[in-house]
């Protein structure tokens, strides 16, 4: 309980600070660069969630423990949500700096690819009636899909050049000042904490649902 309250306060502080305390980064028009504190953490959480989902799928396929599949499913759903948020915030940034919401930048292409893969993953989950089979299929599909991602990383940059800012907004580069860096990392931590909180809620929800369904079935 206490860490959830701390997380709430922490996030409030971050939001207030990135708008009112931190100065906008040089080289970007107006206040655009402030989206950094929201866009990058959502993209990071999406990556983390999809990776976690893949690992949990592998664990499920090896051990056949239902809990691993609950984790895989919850993580995939939250990853989808955060991936969507990253797409929207990225699109807003694209409109403000490049002039159009969508122009198939390699980053945009790969994020759409991820959304499509996990969209298909949920479609597959909803289309298999048998519980055991559904879990196995979902795990197999997510591993198969994960194997195609490296190709996208190699292939897409061959087609078009990216306009995505790398150096000026990279924490490791000198382009970011100390104040920005501190609140950027703070925001990353806050978003990760939020993800963990939501993930645990979702897993508990699935566990309850599963239990209810089993109790319902055993009545017959």
């Amino acid at each position: 309980m206490i860490y959830k309250i701390l997380l709430t306060i922490w996030m409030n502080l971050i939001i207030a600070a990135v708008f009112l305390y931190v100065e906008p980064a040089a080289g970007f028009p107006g206040e655009v660069s402030r989206i950094l504190f929201f866009h990058v953490p959502t993209a990071w959480v999406a990556t983390l969630a999809f990776f976690l989902s893949m690992i949990a799928s592998c664990v499920y396929l090896i051990t056949r423990k239902v809990n691993a599949d609950f984790l895989a499913q919850s993580s995939a759903e939250l990853g989808f949500l955060f991936c969507f948020l990253a797409t929207v915030t990225g699109s807003i940034f694209a409109k403000a700096t490049w002039g159009s919401f969508w122009n198939w930048d390699p980053r945009q292409t790969s994020i759409v690819m991820l959304l499509m893969i996990y969209g298909a993953y949920f479609v597959l989950r909803s289309a298999v009636p048998d519980h055991e089979k559904r879990r196995v299929f979902a795990g197999v599909y997510s591993i198969l899909a994960f194997c195609t991602v490296p190709f996208l990383v190699f292939v897409v940059p061959r087609i078009t050049n990216s306009l995505h800012p790398e150096d000026t907004l990279n924490p490791a580069s000198p382009g970011m000042d100390m104040k920005t860096l501190i609140f950027f990392l703070g925001s990353l931590c806050a978003y990760t904490g939020l993800f963990v909180w939501m993930l645990r809620l979702k897993v508990r929800m699935l566990r309850l649902l599963d239990r209810e369904q089993r109790a319902f079935r055993s009545n017959f």
Binding site: M11, N12, I15, A16, F19, L20, E31
Partner: peptide, 13 residues
């Protein structure tokens, strides 16, 4: 900026 921050805080709450 204050207005934007306030909107963000309300959404977050």
């Amino acid at each position: 900026l204050g207005f934007v921050a306030a909107v963000n805080l309300i959404i977050w709450s």
